[in-house]
């Protein structure tokens, strides 16, 4: 079920970036599995009533991976799938970076390092209101260069916000190079532990691992959970995998067809 959803998310991502001649295919493909498991089995959200008060909040802090979130929201019927064909077009709702004007999206992002502080605010307000709502923030690895995230990490750890879940899409490639070359995050898990977070590491494309982790939150009561999801940029389309180029390039028609065929052939 989640495998099928992830495949559809990927096909939609490719369709959108191909039609709009847009960037960030690799960044979106890398989080397709995480989103599939979250939206299929984990998040307490309702497409028919997207603004109900006690819903879980999902914040896509890496707003440039908008195509992936738009795709899963369309698949889950938050809005008509036809909207996806109008991605980035004049006077349409689906902007290049994620927009809160789209049903099912609570926060607009695009400038990096904004999602986690917002998530801390939501988590604190929800905890104070004794609400069952949880907050999930999905960050990119490159985004962790931003100091604002570390301010928020200090805060969440210090205050033990256990209704807050940070997911890091650790695909090892940032905007202009490999993370280890540009600004190394390692030892990443240790850094987060030192900030008083409960850290889980998993394969971000393994649905069973994602499911098991998400189904047992918080991983430790009284602590925020950080999930370091080891991923592959461009996952699912072999010629896009692990290549900086696909942070920027849009597929040609030939490449688009080839990518779709490859996805179709996958189980």
């Amino acid at each position: 079920m989640t495998t099928e959803l992830a495949k559809n998310i990927r096909k939609n991502i490719l369709n959108m970036v191909y039609r709009a001649k847009a960037s960030h295919a690799g960044s979106s493909l890398s989080i397709a599995d995480i989103l599939a498991v979250l939206y299929e089995n984990i998040l307490n959200v309702d497409a028919k009533n997207p603004d109900f008060k006690e819903r879980d909040r999902f914040i896509l802090s890496k707003g440039h991976a908008a195509t992936a979130l738009y795709a899963v929201l369309a698949e889950k019927e938050f809005f008509p799938k036809e909207w996806l064909d109008k991605y980035c077009e004049n006077d349409q709702l689906l902007s290049g970076h994620i927009s809160h004007y789209v049903p099912g999206v609570d926060f607009s992002t695009g400038s990096l390092g904004h999602g986690l502080p917002i998530a801390c605010g939501v988590a604190l307000a929800k905890r104070t209101a004794r609400s069952p709502a949880r907050v999930f923030a999905l960050l990119s690895d490159g985004e962790c260069d931003e100091g604002s995230n570390w301010e928020a990490m200090l805060f969440a750890g210090h205050h033990g916000l256990d209704n807050l879940v940070l997911i890091i899409d650790y695909n090892k490639i940032q905007s202009f190079g490999r993370v280890e070359d540009v600004l190394d995050l390692e030892p990443f898990a240790d850094k987060l532990r030192a900030f008083k977070w409960n850290v889980q590491e998993l394969d971000g494309h393994n649905h069973e691992a994602l499911q098991n982790c998400f189904a047992n939150l918080p991983a430790k009561s009284g602590m925020p959970t950080a999930i370091i999801a080891h991923t592959v940029k461009g996952q699912g389309v072999s010629f896009m995998e692990n290549k900086l180029l696909w942070h920027y390039k849009s597929p040609t028609e030939e490449q688009f067809q080839e990518a779709l065929e490859e996805l179709e052939a996958q189980p």
Binding site: I118, G121, L124, A125, K126, G147
Partner: peptide, 28 residues
């Protein structure tokens, strides 16, 4: 006391958190 918070010397987090708190129907 429940609606007071010293976030530490961290203005970016302060402002982002305020947005999150406001999102939940509050006036921070």
């Amino acid at each position: 006391p429940d609606r007071y918070m010293n976030v530490g010397v961290a203005e970016q987090n302060l402002a982002g958190m305020a947005a999150g708190i406001a999102h939940c129907g509050n006036i921070p």
